[in-house]
Amino acid sequence: QIFVKTLTGKTITLEVEPSDTIENVKAKIQDKEGIPPDQQRLIFAGKQLEDGRTLSDYNIQKESTLHLVL
């Protein structure tokens, strides 16, 4: 699982696999929060994550925290 922290300070927990794409993660966030993926920007280690890449591409491991910017 990974954590996604929103600007409001809320933390969302997501069940993911390293092979999941960023697009996939955004879809999971939409399921939980109702935020359309095209409004979501995910930041990890100061980098904006691209939809077509996977979590493992960015070396995002379990218990990692991503930041969600709208």
Rank of each mutant, 00 (worst) to 15 (best):
15 E>H: 13
34 G>N: 08
70 L>W: 12
13 T>N: 06
62 K>T: 15
31 D>L: 14
42 L>H: 00
25 V>F: 03
39 Q>D: 07
23 E>S: 14
64 S>T: 07
5 K>Y: 07
47 K>Q: 15
49 L>F: 02
40 Q>A: 05
26 K>P: 00
48 Q>H: 12
58 Y>N: 02
67 H>F: 14
25 V>A: 02
4 V>S: 01
60 I>S: 01
52 G>K: 12
29 I>M: 03
58 Y>T: 02
51 D>V: 06
10 K>Y: 13
27 A>I: 14
69 V>F: 12
59 N>I: 04
56 S>F: 11
24 N>S: 14
5 K>W: 06
41 R>H: 11
38 D>M: 10
40 Q>M: 13
1 Q>N: 10
6 T>D: 06
3 F>R: 06
51 D>C: 06
35 I>F: 11
26 K>G: 01
55 L>A: 02
50 E>L: 09
33 E>Q: 07
16 V>S: 04
66 L>D: 01
58 Y>F: 04
68 L>P: 00
68 L>F: 03
41 R>F: 12
67 H>L: 14
1 Q>Y: 15
38 D>W: 13
60 I>E: 01
49 L>H: 00
16 V>E: 00
25 V>K: 00
57 D>H: 13
28 K>H: 05
12 I>E: 01
4 V>K: 00
16 V>D: 00
42 L>A: 00
35 I>W: 13
8 T>S: 13
34 G>H: 07
8 T>D: 12
41 R>Q: 13
40 Q>P: 01
7 L>H: 14
7 L>I: 11
39 Q>Y: 09
13 T>P: 06
67 H>P: 01
11 T>A: 05
58 Y>I: 03
25 V>M: 05
49 L>R: 00
45 A>N: 15
45 A>Y: 09
35 I>G: 02
33 E>H: 08
37 P>A: 15
23 E>V: 08
69 V>Y: 14
46 G>S: 05
40 Q>V: 09
30 Q>P: 02
50 E>Y: 07
18 P>C: 11
34 G>W: 03
11 T>Q: 07
56 S>T: 08
40 Q>L: 06
30 Q>L: 10
66 L>G: 02
69 V>M: 13
8 T>K: 11
52 G>Y: 11
54 T>N: 05
44 F>Y: 15
33 E>V: 14
29 I>T: 01
14 L>R: 00
8 T>F: 13
48 Q>D: 13
20 D>F: 07
62 K>V: 13
8 T>W: 13
57 D>T: 05
31 D>S: 11
51 D>Q: 05
24 N>C: 15
59 N>D: 09
2 I>E: 00
60 I>Y: 02
67 H>M: 13
42 L>Q: 00
26 K>E: 01
63 E>R: 07
30 Q>R: 14
69 V>L: 12
64 S>H: 07
28 K>N: 03
41 R>M: 12
42 L>P: 00
11 T>K: 07
34 G>R: 06
39 Q>A: 08
12 I>Y: 06
63 E>F: 14
